[in-house]
Design a protein around this nucleic acid. Structure first.
Lengths: 143, 143
DNA sequence: CCTTACCTTTACGTTCACGTAAACTTAATA
DNA sequence: TATTAAGTTTACGTGAACGTAAAGGTAAGG
């Protein structure tokens, strides 16, 4: 029964590498609060190991968190991300599952395409605004 | 005092063009609810003319709404968009205003760049997932 | 031994962006 | 004239994504 009592102190590993992370480490690494990470777990997006009460995050968990945050940046709700995770995880690969997955990817692709267009438009507008601002500033300098 | 009683009925214009819109028309045009449009006004993002109680939206208002919605798609809060509007509108063009504007554009540009990267990564991942799904479906067909 | 630094759960509070219901006015139409 | 169909204000409700105490456990260091 001498399991699950490894790596109690972070960065105090013996031979291999630091494969696990505390909630605080992950929080710092991705600049989020521990509260958020616990909330993602509560919403079924993460399920880290436990050492007693304490959460222990693997590299896979870390990747998951990264995916969650990228999804957030792109306007995905946590529920959507969870659905994607579930579809991806369930390796039942029934026809229905696969088609649901394809539908979801198609839908997401459409949104992303729209966002690309939005970004391009906004970027050139920002170019415009910036130029005009800089011109004005020059005028203020010389005037 | 025979002003502000033009265009009571939509699409019943005489000569020029339909330059104004009712809240319902705008709502349909952009697929949002009238409630949302009123809310944007409440937050200081729109200020349409009035004909009595009724709101009358100009082409400029329409453009504004378009900008608001694009901002939303890119993750801008209404408060951020309002700030941008205010900066853009105030043609005082003081040094401070201009620099605030430049800071804002720089910050937004950074976020957009990050989003572009996120989108590219996700797109290729979607490609991957889609390919695998389709392969699996083929196997199901032939198996 | 005590403090400090993390970790935990429980639970209520908060912000944003509206939704929704109530009660009303005005305008066009049957 | 009565009835839709649009608009209006006021005001309370809601879901998502956390924030923020409160109250406590644990382990290292002075």
């Amino acid at each position: 029964m001498n399991e699950d009592k490894q790596v109690n102190s972070p960065n105090t590993d013996v031979a291999k590498e630091c494969q696990t992370f505390s909630i605080g480490e992950l929080a710092k690494a991705f600049d989020v609060t521990p509260r958020s990470i616990r909330f993602y777990e509560e919403q079924g997006l993460l399920s880290p190991q436990r050492s007693g009460q304490t959460r222990i995050y693997s590299k896979k968990d870390k990747v998951r968190l990264k995916l969650i945050l990228r999804g957030k940046r792109l306007g995905f709700s946590l529920a959507e991300t969870r659905t994607l995770f579930n579809l991806y995880d369930s390796h039942q690969n029934s026809k229905i599952q696969l088609q649901a997955m394809l539908e979801m990817t198609a839908q997401k692709r459409a949104i992303l395409t729209q966002q690309l267009e939005d970004i391009n438009v906004l970027m050139t507008e920002l170019d415009d605004v910036e130029l005009r601002c800089k011109d004005e500033l020059e005028l203020l300098k010389r005037g």
